[in-house]
Design a protein around this nucleic acid. Structure first.
Lengths: 275, 275
DNA sequence: AGTCAGATTGCAAATGCTGCAATCGCCGAG
DNA sequence: CTCGGCGATTGCAGCATTTGCAATCTGACT
């Protein structure tokens, strides 16, 4: 269990414990019993109970009808729904996005997943280059774009079928992957090497590299990438770009993971190497 | 602000305060300064600071680059993203869904929003009736279905344009609304009267009524409704159904809002004193 | 530079939290 | 139907944690 806590600044024990409970419950697929919480926190049963009870009163936890173990409550739902996460991502990633566009000298995009599609939520154009496809606000299929596939990186075949059904996928170009099986294999590869490509699989003549943005090196919350016409984006050039894309994606992930000053620097470092 | 403290059930003060901060920050559109938090909690500056700082260390709050006021952090994102809200909604709504199907004697559906689409996540068929469109897992457009429009009820024209673009909407039947302007007007109406209709706007010959499910009478988290072929679902019959649909939607909303207190009799007191 | 508002830190008091142990409530076994 | 057994809940007294005050720091504006 990774427990990295720095206490240079005094921190409130009981609040911290409460948050631990919240996390534990959120990360568990099953309802969590008081006993388990006691175990996790390593404190007395009664204390765990009172903590959990406080969370329940506030609606952050709830008890499934009749049961006495805990699940997340509606407050979490409400609070996170109300919040404008898209804007947060845009804000945090903006600088990195521009950096990427400048370095590679092609248009860079930021996307999030929206159901079966990837949604472009921001872009940065290189100064001296004609803008390329991918308007902000545009929805593109997940399965045949670099951004989409990056967002799908963690999916296995079962999930893909649940999402797209078991039939064939619509073909956009001659390179489009149309079977779930191929797609699943591609996802595995993408996950391993860290970036996804689009070899004109959605739009003819358009090549694209993208990497998933992960919070805590885990949950995928968005993707960042660059794209350009094949004529301008040679295979080796865009392969080289992949590395930069990955680094930037990671930098943004770090910024999101612990958005405090200390980690601003970590992110800078991560980017600095090739800046 | 009166600070009634009833300690029939002991609750942890500092955790409670921390949660208050979380709420305050989440509900504010703007970053919240330490001063404001102090104000809200009615405690000393330094205490508020330490509380907020603990939340920040855990990633529940963050500071926008360089600034020193607070916004929600990535932990909220991560936790709520990872949690299976769909299942929670299905679980809570299941009974009501069946009830609705029985009462109206037509198929009832439960849907959530997924990007530009409504996603059916559960359904209940009336016993003696041939099943109707709307498989669980099906995605349907937001703008031309009762569920979709119910989910859009709070959107204004600006938001609609941001979502659908400013062009024309695809026409599925002769009744489909194809202009954003019409849609915006419809949304206003839906919001006012509490339910949305689909007069064969997506599928020919299919009529549908749906109402938004709101947590805390505010945030829309899903929709519930019934549908049937027009031949069987006369205009007056389905108008009468609207009322029931609304009631059920509201009931689910209440169940979601206080999932903990709904099953707990003692908690009624707690609710009373909070109000 | 100088001033001011807000953020951060040190410290001792005391409040609130904790763990222990006793009680309660629910199940399944006898 | 009663009896254990297990986990949840509650009462209590000691003391660790949190708190408010006051001092210090930061950094923005004059």
């Amino acid at each position: 269990m990774p427990e990295d806590k720095v206490r240079q600044i005094p921190f409130i024990q009981s609040l911290d414990r409460g948050l631990t409970i919240l996390q534990a419950v959120a990360l568990s697929k099953q309802p969590v019993s008081l006993g388990e919480l006691t175990e996790i926190l390593g404190i007395d049963r009664s204390s765990a109970f009172r903590l959990a009870n406080t969370l329940r009163r506030r609606g952050f936890l709830a008890c499934p009808a009749g049961r006495k173990d805990y699940i997340l409550g509606s407050s979490m739902w409400r609070l996170s729904h109300r919040y404008d996460w898209g804007n947060m991502l845009i804000r945090v990633a903006n600088q990195q996005l521009k950096l990427l566009a400048t370095q590679i000298n092609e248009t860079a995009h930021l996307a999030i997943r929206e159901g079966k599609y990837a949604l472009f939520i921001d872009h940065a154009a290189a100064s001296n280059v004609i803008a390329v496809a991918g308007q902000v606000g545009e929805l593109v299929p997940l399965y045949c774009t670099a951004h989409g596939k990056a967002l799908l990186a963690d999916a296995d075949e079962r999930e893909l079928r649940a999402l797209f059904g078991s039939g064939h996928l619509r073909r956009y170009t001659k390179n489009t992957l149309t079977s779930i099986q191929e797609l699943a294999k591609e996802c595995t590869l993408i996950k391993k090497r860290g970036f996804a490509t689009d070899e004109a699989e959605y739009t003819e003549e358009l090549r694209c590299v993208a990497a998933a943005i992960r919070v805590d090196n885990d949950v995928i919350v968005g993707s960042i990438g660059v794209s350009a016409p094949m004529t301008r984006f040679s295979k080796e050039r865009y392969r080289a770009s992949a590395e930069q894309v990955c680094k930037v994606a990671q930098a943004i992930g770090i910024l999101l993971s612990n958005a405090d000053q200390a980690t601003d620097r970590d992110a800078d470092k991560a980017v600095a190497e090739f800046a």
